[in-house]
């Protein structure tokens, strides 16, 4: 589970669980997923919780902004996911 492609799949699955339209639409890698999918604060927290639970990566609150985009989230997991 440490290749960028695997991370991408995981991220999209989690987002589709939160926002159904994520399953169908193409989100640009540099777009803010909160805007693209109309995620509120709790949706985004649920996204972080699921990422943490499924990768074991600890994501401190201060790092949240690095995961606002798909590119950012994949880069972040690539750096921190040692599984």
């Amino acid at each position: 589970m440490s290749s960028p492609a695997a991370h991408m799949t995981l991220i999209r699955e989690i987002l589709a669980g939160i926002a159904p339209e994520a399953a169908d639409c193409d989100i640009p890698g540099d777009a803010d997923v909160r805007e693209a999918l109309d995620l509120d604060s709790m949706d985004f927290l649920n996204f972080i919780i699921a990422l943490h639970e499924q990768t074991g990566v600890d994501i401190p609150e201060t790092d949240y902004p690095q995961l606002f985009t798909l590119d950012g989230a994949i880069a972040y997991l690539g750096q921190h996911d040692r599984s």
Partner: peptide, 14 residues
């Protein structure tokens, strides 16, 4: 408070 906790235990401002 949240700094020491896993995401599922963190509190939101709300």
């Amino acid at each position: 408070r949240n700094a020491d906790l896993p995401p599922a235990s963190r509190l939101m401002p709300a």
